[in-house]
Amino acid sequence: MDLSSIFNVGTLLNTFNTATIVILAGLGCLMTAQAGMMNIGIDGMMTAGAFAAAVGSWYFGSWGMGLVCALLAGLIFGLFYGVMVIRYKSDEFIIGVALNIFAVALTTFILRTVLKQSGSFHPASGAVNTLPYFSLGEIGGTAVNISVMVPLSWLLVALCAVMLYRTPAGFWLRAAGEHPDSLRSAGRNPEKMKYVGALSCGLLCGLSGAYLSLGYLSTFTENMSAERGYVAVACVIFGRSHPVFVFLAALLFGFIDAAGMRMQGLVDPTLTATFPYVGTILMMVFLALRQQAKKKAKA
C-alpha cells in the first residue's frame, strides 16, 4: 500500500472541508455546555439551518439571504431549546432527541409537501446559490476550492476562545454553568446568560447547516447532517468544552473521514463510511480511560 495515496494534499483539504461542519456545530454545542446545558439537539439545528440556507438562497437568489435564513432558523431553534430547558426546566436529553427528530421531519415534510420534491432539493427554475470560495488552482489534475466558511470557522474558534476566557460576558457565561448561585449573588442573572449560550448555539449551528448545504454540498438533502451533530457533541466532550481543543478534535474527525474516503480503492466505500463514527467512539473511550487513570493516580 502506498502511504502517499492517503497522506497527501487532497486528504488535507478534505480534512478541513469535513471538519468545518463539526467545528461550527461543536462551537455551538460548547457555548451551551459552558453555560451548563448538554445540548444533544444540535444535529436538528444543523438540519434546520441547512434547509433554510438552501431554500432561502434559491428563493431570494443570493447566498447572502440563504445565510441570513440559516441564522434565523438557528436562532429560532436555539430560542426554542432555551425556553424548553431554561424556562420550563425540561429534560435536556428528551428535548434534544425530540428536537432532532422534529427538525428532520419538518424539513422533509416541507420539502415533499410544499416544494414537491423528495430526496434532495433541486428547484425546477432558478438555482441554489452556493457560498463564495477560494480557488487554490489545480492539485493532481483536479480543481481545488475552499469555501469561505472554512477560514471563517477558524476565526470563530479564536473569537469564541477570546470571548469565553478574556471577556466579562464569557466569564459570566461560564459562571452560569458552574456556579449559577454565585453569579446570582454577584448581581447577574444566570438564566439570561444561559439564554445567551442557547442562542449563540443556534446561530453557530445554523452557520454549520448553511455550510453543509451551500459549501460542503451544493443543495439540501433529507437528513443531511448524517449524525455529524452527535459527532460534534462527542468532540465537545473530548475537547472538554474548550474551543481550541474542540477544534483539534474536529480536525481529527475530519482527518479520519478524509483518510477513509482515500482508502475507498482498497476498502469498500460502505465500510469506510463507518470509520469516522468508529473513530469518534474510540476517541471518547480513550479520553475516559485517561481520565480514570488520572483519578487513580491521584488517589
Binding site: 462527542a234 467512539i281 471518547m284 473511550v285 475516559a288
Partner: peptide, 16 residues
C-alpha cells in the same frame, strides 16, 4: 464503567 454518554455512542453505533 467509563461514564461515556450513551445517547451519543448508541446513535453513532446505529450508523456503524
Amino acid at each position: 464503567k467509563l461514564k461515556i454518554n450513551e445517547v451519543i455512542t448508541t446513535i453513532l453505533m446505529n450508523s456503524i
